[in-house]
């Protein structure tokens, strides 16, 4: 069975009308069905308003479906009794690096998750040190969080998720507010975590980041618009344009230079020319 299974997922936000009653508002997700396998690296792309961020929040029960089901490792996110079982399995890193750090000091923030799980102090210490080493921030462990750059803060947020020893981490546009160096360091860590067996779900609007996944899901108006390998997804130029997206630079170049569509990377281009 798939690690995460999403079936007919509908999320409808309610709004308060003039008379103070709750009425149905905008539909963010309109019937999404997909399975995510353990250990995979899935990128989710789509325009703003396509529902990708709401989808991410459904995967660990931050948003509960209006209709349909999300099951994580056998636990349904509707089942409040197992919410913590779900959240310890599915960690999450958000877009704004500043707004997800709870404690002023780096290592105390990383400890926040494990502390909530009620783990013994010595074990928390070990996990925090491991997580900080993994993101390359161990030397900064006693620093104040506000002294760090955006990229460094985002690495702390990743360490905070890693310290909970999750099976899966959902990244909700983790690089959107970073400079190119910060973006690169975060992408390197994401790929490393995936190589170590953590399931990665990456919401992004950078196509070159999505191209590094094993699978891409394109959302449009709350529906799965396309789902496949980066090769298949980026072969369909028309679909990409309809979804309001663009091709990664390598593929754009391949198309315009008239190279065969098996070419995906710069290495492939070099092979073609040699």
């Amino acid at each position: 069975m798939a690690f995460i299974s999403v079936k007919d997922l509908i999320v409808e936000f309610t709004r308060i009308d003039e008379d103070g009653r709750e009425v149905p508002g905008k539909k963010a997700l309109n019937g999404v069905t997909l399975d995510i396998d353990r250990g995979s690296f899935v990128a989710i792309i789509g325009m703003n308003g396509s529902g990708k961020s709401t989808f991410a929040k459904c995967l660990n029960g931050l948003v509960i479906p209006t209709a349909g089901d999300v099951t994580v490792d056998g636990f349904n996110t509707r089942d409040e009794g197992h919410l913590w079982d779900i959240r310890r399995r599915v960690g999450m890193v958000f877009q704004n690096p500043d707004n997800q750090i709870v404690s002023s000091i780096v290592e105390d923030d990383v400890a926040f998750g494990p502390e909530n799980l009620g783990i013994k102090p010595a074990e928390i210490r070990r996990r925090v040190d491991d997580a900080l080493r993994k993101v390359g921030m161990y030397e900064h462990r006693t620093k104040g969080a506000h002294m760090l750059s955006g990229g460094q803060k985002q690495r702390i947020a990743i360490a905070g998720a890693v310290a909970m020893r999750p099976e899966c981490i959902v990244f909700d546009e983790p690089t959107a507010m970073l400079d190119p160096q910060g973006r690169q360091s975060v992408m390197d860590i994401i790929k490393e975590l995936n190589a170590e067996g953590i399931t990665v779900i990456l919401i992004t609007h950078y196509m070159n980041e999505a191209a590094q996944a094993d699978r891409i899901v394109v959302l449009k108006k709350g529906l799965v618009f396309a789902d496949g390998t980066p090769h298949d997804i980026f072969a369909d130029r028309e679909m990409i344009e309809k979804a309001g997206l663009e091709l990664p630079y390598e593929i754009e170049l391949r198309e315009k230079a008239g190279l065969p569509d098996t070419v995906m990377t710069v290495e492939d281009i070099i092979c073609q020319l040699k």
């Binding site: 630079y249 170049l253 315009k256 230079a257 710069v266 281009i269 020319l273 040699k274």
Partner: peptide, 30 residues
Amino acid sequence: IMNRISAEIPDLKSDALTIDEAAAELREYI
């Protein structure tokens, strides 16, 4: 991208800035 290609194929010199220019250089080289 063109810099990485030129490093492997020294024969292909590039001063492209945009994808269109790069594509033209690749076609010309081919």
